[in-house]
Amino acid sequence: MILSVLLLVLIVGAALLLMLSPLRQGTPDDPDAPERTRLLTERDRLYTELAALHEDDPKRPDLERRAALTLRGLDALPPAVQGNARRTGRLALIGVGVMALLTVAGALTFVPRWQLAALNADESRNVQAVLELPGLRRAAERTDTDAAYMAWGKAAFDSGQYDQAVTAYGNALKQNPRQPEALRRLGILLLTRGEQTGQKISDADAERATLLIRTAAQLAPREAESQLLLGFALARYGQDDAALTALESYRTLDPKGRDADELITAIRARQNDSDPALRVYAASCASCHGAAGGGGIGPSLRASRLTRESLKAVTLQGRGAMPAFPNLSAAELTGLLDLMEKWQEEGQ
Rank of each mutant, 00 (worst) to 15 (best):
R258L: 11
A14Y: 05
T245E: 09
D30C: 03
R302D: 04
S304T: 07
P221L: 15
L336R: 00
V111Q: 08
R178N: 13
D44M: 00
P134L: 10
Q82F: 07
A33E: 15
Y169Q: 02
R72A: 10
R178M: 07
G89F: 08
R142T: 12
G294I: 03
R36T: 09
Q175L: 10
A52I: 09
G89P: 00
R43Q: 12
M19W: 07
V314N: 01
L136A: 15
L63K: 11
E332C: 04
T192Y: 10
L53R: 01
P323L: 06
G347F: 10
A277F: 04
A233E: 11
L133S: 01
T41Q: 15
Q179M: 11
I94N: 15
L63C: 05
Q239C: 01
W114S: 08
A283Y: 09
G347E: 15
Q344N: 13
R302V: 00
G347C: 11
R137Y: 06
A52H: 08
P79W: 02
K154C: 09
A243V: 12
V9G: 14
D259K: 08
R113M: 09
K256A: 15
E309A: 10
G95Q: 05
L46Q: 06
R208V: 12
P177V: 00
E195M: 03
L53W: 02
S226M: 13
S329M: 03
A148D: 06
C285I: 03
E195I: 00
I201D: 00
L328M: 11
Q196K: 04
G160A: 10
A165S: 13
R36Y: 11
T334W: 01
Q179L: 10
Y169H: 03
F325E: 00
